[in-house]
């Protein structure tokens, strides 16, 4: 057999994975970049997105694309509201202290996970893809839905970048990221920016969860791997750097597919965790970042 079809397939799979990862990691990166806090419950927001898609598929009648589109709208709104509430009830009250935030989002992670277990159950649940269309290549056919995932990710990330660079909200966010006190003095509603950023970060993860559920299954523990991979992406790309995060997401999403061909998943995870730790120890500015002062 020719090597070309194999490479093409691996590239496509890598791109799909990179797209979802880009959305999820961007949420984590945005929160860290602007608020300087690490949200350990980020993976649970991803999982909630997937579970919401399953709930929609079961409650909303009609052809599969109807509940899917509904999920794409409802899941981020629901998860965003949840994140906003968590910000209001917890993070704001501990004044976004970085260490206390990690501890309390670990608590949030357990709560979301176990509540999902109680209501949704321990079994993995499949969701039908919104449409079946096969893109034909000379060697094989490929799911059109996966191209759709890539397209949605590109549109969302593009839109987000545009907003960050060109809108007033984006200006507020950049100003807050640069210097919280000064931003406050200029009349920027920093607390609102924080709540908004935390909610948007969670929404991005939720959309990632909705997109992934037709090709994976929804399960209450499915948030672990996206959280770990997002950590890898955000830290390799340089903490808080949006372009670095996007570049790292593509690199890691693409290579993860290839790595899993050669190594067992456990070994790949050992490699990822050690990579995060060692990058933080030896190159805290990230692999792509400029050398620090």
């Amino acid at each position: 057999m020719d090597i070309v079809p194999y490479l093409l397939l691996a590239t496509l799979e890598g791109l799909v994975q990179a797209s979802v990862l880009m959305l999820t990691a961007l949420g984590l990166s945005l929160v860290f970049g602007v608020m300087r806090v690490v949200n350990v419950s980020h993976g649970e927001f991803f999982m909630l997105g997937a579970v919401a898609a399953w709930v929609c598929a079961n409650l909303i009648p009609g052809p599969p694309y109807v509940p899917f589109i509904a999920a794409l709208l409802i899941a981020p709104v629901f998860v965003g509201a949840l994140a906003w509430a968590a910000d209001w009830a917890i993070l704001k009250r501990i004044n976004y202290n970085p260490e206390a935030t990690i501890v309390s989002t670990i608590g949030l992670m357990y709560i979301i996970q176990q509540m999902t277990l109680i209501t949704f159950g321990p079994d993995a649940q499949a969701v039908e893809a919104p449409f079946y269309h096969t893109v034909r290549f000379p060697w094989f056919g490929y799911s059109g839905y996966k191209f759709f995932i890539i397209a949605v990710a590109i549109v969302l990330v593009g839109g987000l970048l545009y907003l960050l660079r060109h809108s007033k909200v984006g200006l507020y966010m950049r100003a807050t990221q640069f210097d919280k006190e000064t931003a406050q003095n200029f009349g920027i509603p920093v607390t609102k920016v924080y709540s908004g950023v935390f909610a948007v970060g969670a929404m991005l993860a939720a959309i990632g969860g909705v997109l992934v559920v037709p090709s994976q299954q929804a399960h209450y523990l499915m948030g672990h791997d996206p959280l770990l991979l997002s950590f890898v992406v955000v830290i390799v790309g340089g903490l808080g750097s949006i372009p670095g995060t996007i570049a790292a997401a593509i690199l890691i999403g693409m290579s993860d597919g290839l790595l899993s061909v050669f190594f067992s998943p456990t070994l790949a995870k050992i490699f990822s965790t050690l990579l995060v730790a060692l990058v933080l120890v030896f190159r805290p500015q990230g692999l792509f970042g400029k050398a620090g002062r």
Binding site: I90, R93, I94, A100, V103, S104, I106, G107, L108, M109, Y110, I111, Q113, Q114, M115
Partner: peptide
């Protein structure tokens, strides 16, 4: 684990 999670938050707060 819910209780552990809730306590982590309560104690922190």
């Amino acid at each position: 684990l819910i209780v552990i999670g809730a306590l982590l938050i309560v104690v922190t707060l």
